[in-house]
Nucleic acid binder design. Sequence first.
DNA 1: GGGCCTATATATCGGTCTGATAGAGACAGG
DNA 2: CCTGTCTCTATCAGACCGATATATAGGCCC
Lengths: 188, 188
Amino acid sequence: MEVKTLCLGVLNLGAASGYEIKKKFEDSPVGDFMEASYGSIYPALTKLTEEGLVTCEAQAQEGRPDKKVYSITEKGKAAFVSAMSVSPSEDKYRSEFAFMMLFADLLAPHQVSHLIDLQILRYRQKQVEERFQLLPPESRSAQFLEGYGQAVFAAAIKYLEENRHLVEARPNGKTQTAAAATKEAATA
Amino acid sequence: MEVKTLCLGVLNLGAASGYEIKKKFEDSPVGDFMEASYGSIYPALTKLTEEGLVTCEAQAQEGRPDKKVYSITEKGKAAFVSAMSVSPSEDKYRSEFAFMMLFADLLAPHQVSHLIDLQILRYRQKQVEERFQLLPPESRSAQFLEGYGQAVFAAAIKYLEENRHLVEARPNGKTQTAAAATKEAATA
DNA sequence: GGGCCTATATATCGGTCTGATAGAGACAGG
DNA sequence: CCTGTCTCTATCAGACCGATATATAGGCCC
């Protein structure tokens, strides 16, 4: 899914500037599933304007640069509905933390524990994070999305708490060196 | 995390060609959390060789182009351990499906149901997918990683099944057209 | 008042990564 | 025999991220 499509989606819910589009991703539950940087939002809005899918109205402001408020056109709405009709690509869960856990035996035990603590903390913060709603709170779509994220976060926390011993425990209670690992592999 | 680091990690578990590195991501549980394309793996291996972090040995093969088997050096191992010592970036869960659900009211009801069916099916396939292990199956790291992915998949499926009615149900039981949506918004 | 952080707001840019594509022989199935 | 799948390397356009620049207002601490 291109950033152009993401922008059309947000603008479909109401006019906004490039800055506001970014903020909406950061501060609403959509941000758990999709994001975009300024470096892709601004060029996308320019292209969308050229293609006639959005219109731009510059609002003069004191001090700050003009606020360019973008609105979706009928043509833009049609393009968005059309983009929503193609099959979505598969979900991607990217986690450097998980990758690092594969190599837990290269790290000192306290480092592993610290990483897991940090990971759980991050998920807990996501659970309590206050967010404004992109759609009205009573919207079923918004509820569905919010709950989807929360369900995944809760599952991750639960798993980490219940299974952290797998990577924290040491077979013989001492730090595993490269030499020890080789020896172990040989006997296995 | 750069692709160079991902390659070092895989090579740390055993020598491999660029092709094999890609396959290992696809066919093992690590692929649930990290991935890389050929377009980034091959240049990464070239750079790693230049930097002396890996060595390359070309094995002549009948018919096929030479198989370039890369092995990690001591310098490479040190670099990898060093890379594992920096704090991981936050997990990212990217889902076009979730984004589309925000706009469920723009889609025909049967399309929404179809999307959810497809999503559940994809997760079920991930649950039963046969994978070879990057590390020996009895490795606790491998178990931890495999379980982490499975826990998240299971939670996603459970949530989708229990809450799909939120986006499938219609307030008045009829297909919502653009005109109907406008009318509804006016009365709300 | 000075220093500093945060927020609003647009915009650019180097470097990185993806996804598609190409080429080329092997090997299996219909 | 032909088509598809597999192994293997490799490239490239286009998309995207993260950092940075610029400029101003407002709040906070000392």
